[in-house]
């Protein structure tokens, strides 16, 4: 985190989310890891035919709804060469979501048309969706490594893998994510010395490893420190290698939090049928315009 050319904070590790899947269920139905959205839908169909929910999702949480859509938008537009300047343009107001992301949202509604995500899931908390995933009622779940311990606690025998978020065009796929929290020190703190010592310690390979042990899967920002990714993330390797880890809202400046919230709510409204994709994105644009003109 820099400001006026000065360094104010350095994140400790990165965060990301992708699609966790139940390895045993994939084996049982002889399924390959999907590489495109179409392949994903074919996999989903097999699960549906066998009475298994393809993907659990707690759409009651607006942020969860937003993450699912932004993952597809990242694959199909924001992460493509033509969408590279979108975040900056959206921040300043020279690009609108409706123009840029409507095709992606229309594609996303395929999840609804195919019955993978349903209105019922608007009444589902994330924790309850996790229960469906770990009990084998659902085969996939989009989240990040921070839930790995929960999965293991709920079902120690479960074999879990992760593949990247997918788009229609194929390629290595994308992880939704970015730099994690950075530590700052209050210049007037009475414990400044101790705080610097903590920072110092965190900046050693040992410190990074200790930090990483509680957040397995992220990568370190310390030069020369590379962690061996746990086996669960093998199917996502290519996306990491390409550097395909990005969280678009990080480029939206002050619009970030209110627009994350509004976008999530509007995705919920699309699921519930109160808004068309076009209306939903127009509403987000309207809110962004109001925020920019403050």
């Amino acid at each position: 985190m820099t400001f006026d050319g000065k360094l104010y904070g350095l994140p400790q590790a990165s965060w990301f989310n992708g699609i966790y899947y139940n390895v045993d269920l994939f084996k049982k139905y002889n399924l390959q890891i999907p590489k495109t959205l179409d392949e994903y839908f074919a996999v989903a169909k097999t699960f549906q035919d066998n009475g298994i929910k393809p993907q659990a999702i707690g759409l009651k949480n607006a942020n969860v709804a937003m993450q699912s859509f932004i993952a597809l938008a990242l694959n199909d537009y924001i992460g493509m060469p033509e969408g590279k300047g979108f975040d900056e343009a959206f921040r300043t107001g020279s690009a609108s979501m409706k123009e840029a992301l409507l095709p992606a949202l229309n594609t996303w509604t395929e999840y609804l048309k195919r019955g993978i995500f349903t209105k019922d899931m608007l009444g589902l908390e994330e924790e309850q969706a996790i229960d469906e995933f770990t009990s084998g009622k659902a085969a996939m779940f989009q989240t990040g490594p921070w839930y790995m311990d929960t999965f293991k606690q709920k079902n120690p025998a479960m074999n879990i893998g992760m593949f990247p978020n997918l788009g229609t065009k194929g390629g290595p796929g994308w992880m939704v994510g970015g730099p994690g929290v950075a530590f700052g020190i209050n210049a007037k703190s009475t414990a400044k010395e101790a705080a610097f010592q903590v920072l110092e310690l965190l900046s050693t390979p040992e410190g990074q490893e200790a930090y990483w042990n509680d957040n397995k899967g992220g990568s370190s920002f310390l030069k020369g420190v590379e962690f061996e990714m746990p086996a669960e993330y093998r199917d996502a390797q290519e996306a990491f290698k390409q550097g395909n880890v990005y969280f678009p809202p990080n480029g939206w400046g002050a619009l970030r939090n209110p627009i994350i919230d509004e976008l999530g709510k509007m995705i919920q409204a699309v699921v519930g049928g109160q808004e068309t994709p076009e209306q939903a994105l127009a509403s987000v644009d309207k809110k962004a315009a109001a925020l920019r003109s403050k």
């Binding site: 759409l59 009651k60 949480n61 607006a62 608007l122 709510k265 509007m266 919920q268 409204a269 699921v271 519930g272 109160q274 808004e275």
Partner: peptide, 9 residues
């Protein structure tokens, strides 16, 4: 219960 959702309902 709902954080104002689903949507703004």
């Amino acid at each position: 219960l709902t954080s104002g959702g689903p949507g703004h309902a």
